[in-house]
Amino acid sequence: MSKIILITGASSGIGESCARHAVAAGHKVALAARSSDKLEALVTELGAENALALPTDVTDPEAQERMVARAVAHYGRLDVVLANAGVGASARGTEAAPVESLREMIELNCLAVTYTAKFTLPHLRASKGHMVLTGSKASQGPMWGSVYSATKWFIRGYADNLGEELGAAGGRVTCLHPGMVDTPFFDEAKPDALRPEDVARAFLFAIEQPEYVLIPHLPVYPKPKQP
Rank of each mutant, 00 (worst) to 15 (best):
L46V: 14
D160L: 13
T59C: 13
E45A: 11
R172W: 03
A89L: 03
Q140W: 13
I106E: 06
D182K: 05
L218P: 07
L111Y: 13
E104T: 09
T116V: 15
R34L: 14
V113G: 04
W153S: 04
A169P: 00
I14S: 02
F205Y: 15
R66N: 07
I5Q: 05
L204C: 08
H177M: 10
G141C: 10
F185I: 12
A41S: 14
P142F: 07
K190W: 12
K152G: 01
H217N: 14
A206K: 01
V173Y: 04
V220R: 04
Y158K: 03
P216C: 04
G141F: 13
N84M: 13
V99E: 13
P191A: 11
D192P: 01
G9R: 01
V213P: 11
G167V: 07
T174K: 07
I207Y: 08
A150W: 07
E211W: 10
L194R: 00
S146H: 14
A41K: 14
G26D: 01
G47W: 09
L111N: 05
V81E: 03
N109E: 08
L124S: 03
N109G: 02
L121D: 04
A73D: 15
T151F: 02
R201N: 11
G93D: 08
R103Y: 12
E100D: 14
L176I: 11
G93L: 09
A200L: 09
A69I: 02
M131H: 11
C110K: 00
S2G: 01
I7L: 01
G157D: 08
V43R: 01
V220S: 07
E208W: 04
I207F: 11
H123F: 12
N84I: 06
D182F: 07
L218G: 02
M1P: 10
P219E: 08
A159T: 04
E211G: 07
P178Y: 09
R103A: 14
I106M: 15
A193C: 10
N109M: 05
E211C: 02
V199N: 01
L166T: 08
R77W: 02
L6G: 04
A97P: 00
P227I: 00
P216Y: 07
Q226V: 10
E62S: 14
V43T: 10
K152R: 06
Y115E: 01
F119H: 14
V181I: 13
A24R: 15
A97G: 02
Y75P: 03
H177T: 00
P210Q: 08
A69Y: 05
E104Y: 01
G145S: 08
E164A: 15
A193G: 07
L166Q: 04
A51I: 04
P222H: 09
F119L: 11
K137M: 13
S2N: 11
A96Q: 12
P224M: 03
C175F: 03
N50V: 05
Y158S: 00
L194T: 02
G15Q: 09
K128W: 04
I215S: 06
R156E: 07
H21L: 12
A51R: 06
S12Y: 07
G26T: 03
K128Y: 03
L102Y: 11
I207L: 11
H217Y: 14
V181A: 06
